[in-house]
Design a protein around this nucleic acid. Structure first.
Lengths: 249, 249
DNA sequence: TCGATACTTCGGCCGGCGTCGAAGTGTCCG
DNA sequence: CGGACACTTCGACGCCGGCCGAAGTATCGA
């Protein structure tokens, strides 16, 4: 009735409006199926609608509806090719949001896989995998920690690349893009290791280089990757790794 | 029927289980009221249930239910004092998640405030406010960019504190905690300025120091803060700011 | 001891959303 | 040209969850 009351409700409306935009974004990931889609897409590649449907165990029509929701919400980008609908995460920000949620979500019990293939699949993922555009798993944290030990990374005042780190990347043929808005170095909590691995433009560049130089290859169509003999050799020489677990076949 | 099919559905169950944990976390923020609560709590302080209820414009009983949900989900920590229920964000990780969502949520139209008090409230927030445990608004980005210009921060290879930055903090009586898991320096996208301001342990330390040294004081019970004459003086001398907008009364 | 205040519990209402299968459209390939 | 395949649209079903007000409990202050 009075100005006071009217003003109070106007303020509340404003508060709720802000809340609604955040809630809308969170709502995109507040469904088990949509979250499963995004976790799968965290491998950084494009999937077809059917692949995602089978992956998450839902009908194709259900997948269609969810993909519409996710793309309209701006979390996914899509590309149509013939009768296929390819979708991928819209960009690094979207991937970071999914990572963030996954890292904070309570650790699940994982009641010990019962089949042999499930066991090997899981151990391959824990050993080495991609996390959107950078490396994760034992491989990811090993590289990260080896870089820190060799003085290529500074975690105390950073995270940041040291001058030695810039040289080390240069020797691989990787140069830093100047004035990028995205942080060069960003910590990303590893699911399986529970220690941070390297993300940001540098993490992405190292991952890209590892693929291009044949250090790693994908295992089938999963997020898991396999370290090649060339990769072992390169890690051992470039990071002074000796008798490290990641070097075992 | 066959082992193949059984294995495939087992894998889908596993996928859905992972999806469900992420969805549960996202679901906490997928409601306009709960999101509004968390955005309010982003000021880093503890609010009572009633304050939040009035802030978001819902009944007290509704607020109770939401606070139960949020605390059980691990996003909020609560403290009971007599007949009051104080809640705050559970920690830096929770605050970062809320920040992340808020930064990525589509910019809202904000149809020009109609009342005088709404206008002044908004401009005070845009000028200087806290963002969980660090400074935001024009003040936050001004400090951040001035530090970068003076060579105290390195955005190219970092973000990271330079040796000069360590000295500068030392002159304020701030020392870096060694071997912290939390990054010393982290960029946090500013709502109003759309440029990053400084977060991480260093951002928090600077904010704490600004309060303790009387550089800033809170405006009422909002997130907004006001720069004191001592604060103006300190910024001008310590960061070489001359005729900068933030120094105007 | 009594009233005021802060929060909680309960019951009931209602809307929204995720799910599916069946039928429809578009694309590829033989 | 016709069959196979990928995706989409539609309708129906069911359930979950947010909202409120009223009544109940706990705490504070006089």
């Amino acid at each position: 009735m009075t100005e006071n009351v009217r003003e109070r409700t106007a303020a509340a409306d404003e508060v709720r409006a802000e809340g609604r935009t955040v809630a809308a974004l969170a709502g995109l990931l507040a469904d088990a199926t949509r979250a499963a889609f995004c976790l799968a897409l965290l491998d950084g590649r494009a999937w077809t609608a059917n692949e995602l449907a089978r992956h998450a165990g839902v009908a194709a029509s259900t997948a269609t509806a969810h993909l519409n929701t996710l793309t309209e919400g701006g979390l996914l980008a899509e590309e149509r090719q013939g009768r296929h609908r390819y979708v991928r995460l819209a960009g690094p920000e979207a991937a970071e949001l999914v990572e963030h949620l996954a890292a904070l979500a309570p650790r699940q019990h994982t009641p010990a896989p019962r089949t042999l293939s499930a066991t090997t699949r899981r151990s391959a993922m824990a050993r080495a995998r991609t996390c959107y555009d950078h490396l994760a798993g034992l491989l990811g944290v090993t590289i990260t920690e080896a870089m820190a030990e060799r003085g290529l990374l500074d975690w105390e005042r950073g995270p940041a690349l040291t001058p030695a780190g810039v040289d080390w990347l240069g020797a691989l043929g990787i140069t830093l893009p100047p004035g990028s808005k995205r942080p060069a170095v960003r910590p990303c909590l590893d699911f399986t290791e529970r220690r941070p691995h390297l993300a940001g433009t540098v993490g992405a560049a190292i991952c890209r280089h590892a693929f291009e130089a044949g250090w790693i290859v994908r295992i089938g169509t999963t997020r898991a990757v396999s370290l090649t003999p060339e990769g072992r050799q390169a890690l051992a020489s470039r990071l002074d790794l000796r008798h490290h677990a990641i070097l075992a076949p």
